[in-house]
Every structure is written in C-alpha cells, then in structure tokens.
C-alpha cells in the first residue's frame, strides 16, 4: 500500500534504515554541561518568572550490579507541565502551555547521583505525575524509564504502572524523604540498572531497523 500523497499514511516498509545507536562511551565532553540546567523552576536565569505548579526536588542515583554509582553517565529528563501537557512543536502555542516551563533538560553525572528541581506534572489523560528519565552511558546504548511519586492517587490507575507487576511498580515510585529549606518536598529514587532489585526499563525502540 505505497501511497504517493504525502499526507497519506506512509507505508512502514518505505522508511529509511536507521543509523545504529551506539554507546556514548566514557568520554562525553563534560564541558558542555554549562548549557544544561538542573533547575526547571527558573525558566530564565535572573528573572522572576516561575512555572505554575508545585515545586519538588527529585533526588536519585543510578546504581550498577555491584551497588556502585553509574559514574560518567548522561541523563535526560522529560516531563509535562502542571496541566499535564508536554511542550513540543505541536503544543508550543497552546493555551495549556506554560511559557515559563520547558520540561526537558539533561545532566552529566560524575558519580551516578542527580538532583533535579522542577514542578510536579499534572494528571491529564489518566496519567499520574511522572518524569521520563533516559540514561546514556558507557556499557549500554540507552535505557528509558519513568519515575512516579509516592502518595499520588493517580498512581493506582496510571497505564505505565498498571502494566507492571506490583513489585516492579514500587521500583518506579520515588519516596518522600523530607523537604529543603524552602519547604520544597524532596523525593528520592534509586534506579538499579542490573541484578537484584532491578528497575524496570521500557522499550521505546521502533519496529523498523530493529532486529533481535
């Protein structure tokens, strides 16, 4: 069913073969960090604007099979705004977009630890508040998972959590461990890459170009 009209569904067999993913390796340039932010509650440094929503801090660490931190890894964070809407090309001008919240950032962790100051995302479309974490590191190409928050009623109906067995759901729920000096709640998550207590990761690779 090859169709010539650009607006028609493109036959998947017409897709171009994807360039292979490869490991980021251990030498990703640390010096590019200066463009990255671990505070999504300040859209522009030096201005008073802030995003809508409840501020939170997500603290966490990536742990390997031996219990050591996944040093030298690159982490990307992605989440919806307080209304539960993701800021993309398609939603950029939507009234539901918060002009002072971006929802994407990246961080190169030296030790495997990270701390992201952000806002808790909304619950649109049946989703519980969550943050998508993508890990690039030496030894792997890419690992993707989502982190949720303790005590959210919407966790009970979230499709991602519901797709997992109970013991695996718990691995994705960050625990409330306290608050900082500004009374911002601090959540904590340990992400275990391999072995006992392994965190569930998700397969976001597309069909084409993928083979076993």
């Amino acid at each position: 069913m090859v169709k010539n009209n650009m607006n028609d569904t493109i036959n998947p067999t017409n897709r171009l073969p994807l360039t292979n993913e490869d490991t980021v390796g251990p030498y990703y340039p640390i010096c590019y960090d200066h463009d990255d932010r671990m505070d999504l509650t300040k859209s522009i440094v030096g201005q008073q604007f802030e995003p809508k929503g409840d501020k939170i801090i997500l603290r966490g660490r990536y742990i390997d099979k031996n219990g050591d931190g996944a040093h030298g890894a690159l982490i990307e964070f992605w989440q919806a705004n307080a209304q539960g809407v993701f800021r993309t090309e398609d939603t950029e001008s939507s009234p539901e977009i918060d002009p002072h919240f971006d929802g994407y950032t990246r961080y190169r962790t030296v030790t495997g630890d990270f701390e992201l100051k952000t806002i808790k995302s909304g619950t649109q479309l049946g989703r519980a508040p969550n943050i998508t974490l993508t890990l690039f590191s030496d030894g792997i190409s890419r690992l993707v998972t989502q982190v949720f928050f303790e005590n959210e009623i919407s966790n009970e109906t979230d499709p991602v959590l519901m797709s997992l067995p109970q013991d695996k759901r718990d691995k994705l729920i960050a625990r409330l461990v306290g608050e900082d000096d500004d009374n911002i709640p601090i959540y904590d998550i340990e992400i275990i890459l391999a072995g006992e207590g392994e965190t569930p990761f998700f397969d976001d690779f597309l069909a084409l170009g993928w083979r076993d």
Binding site: P26, A70, G139, Q146, L193, F201, F202
Partner: peptide
C-alpha cells in the same frame, strides 16, 4: 562494550510501553 556493560546492562527484558503513555 568498553568497560561497564556487565555491570550496567539490565538482565530482565525491557517492558512494552502502553499505547496511552
């Protein structure tokens, strides 16, 4: 791969993402 694949590669299968997510 280089140095850490044994330590960092999940042993369990990846999970399917539900369409709604």
């Amino acid at each position: 791969t280089d140095n850490t694949s044994y330590e960092r590669t999940p042993r369990e299968n990846l999970r399917i993402i539900p369409p709604a997510a």
